[in-house]
């Protein structure tokens, strides 16, 4: 069942990136999707029921807007630090504790953290994320966990868990 779902998602993706509905194209896409499913299907371990719950899509849309806003802010922040003659940076690696349970949730959160103000996720061990931060504004684990991960965690929990 989950192989069929993966196959359909991959075929739809192929049709979108090639954007033509000729028979040859569909056949090539089907073969490619079949190969990918056969090779990587065992890594696709989602609960399929989650795909059919509409409130998850609603929160994904909300998250998209929140994330875009944070991302634009991040860019102005980094651009400011780069252009400023004195370069106000104070870098360091901090440990952030995550409250998420699912693998996909952790992955999306780590990716989101990489895209937001001055932070790059360096490594993920169990549920502790190591984050390189361009401006360490506080030494208190509580404060910076909230600052780095807290913004997104609630949304991601609603989408994936």
């Amino acid at each position: 069942m989950r192989y069929v779902a993966l196959f359909i998602i991959l075929l739809l993706f192929w049709l979108l990136i090639t954007f033509s509905l000729t028979i040859e194209n569909v056949i090539v896409g089907a073969v490619a999707a079949l190969l990918t499913t056969a090779l990587f299907g065992k890594f696709f371990r989602h609960n399929l029921i989650k795909f059919l719950q509409p409130q998850r899509y609603f929160w994904a849309l909300v998250y998209l807007f929140v994330f875009t806003w944070e991302c634009v802010k991040a860019n102005f922040d980094v651009a400011y630090r780069v252009i400023h003659p004195a370069m106000p940076i104070k870098p360091g690696i901090v440990r952030v504790k995550l409250n998420l349970k699912t693998e996909i949730g952790k992955t999306i959160l780590a990716n989101s953290i990489t895209m937001t103000p001055g932070t790059i996720s360096v490594d993920l061990i169990d549920d502790e994320l190591y984050v390189h931060w361009i401006y360490v504004s506080s030494m208190d684990p509580e404060v910076y966990s909230q600052k780095i991960a807290g913004r997104f965690e609630n949304y991601i929990k609603k989408i994936f868990e």
Partner: peptide, 18 residues
């Protein structure tokens, strides 16, 4: 940023975000 920032981690910051 890639030219100005001091070490590899900070350079990655500007290379990914901007």
């Amino acid at each position: 940023g890639l030219v100005r920032l001091p070490d590899v981690y900070n350079r990655l910051q500007s290379a990914t975000k901007c």
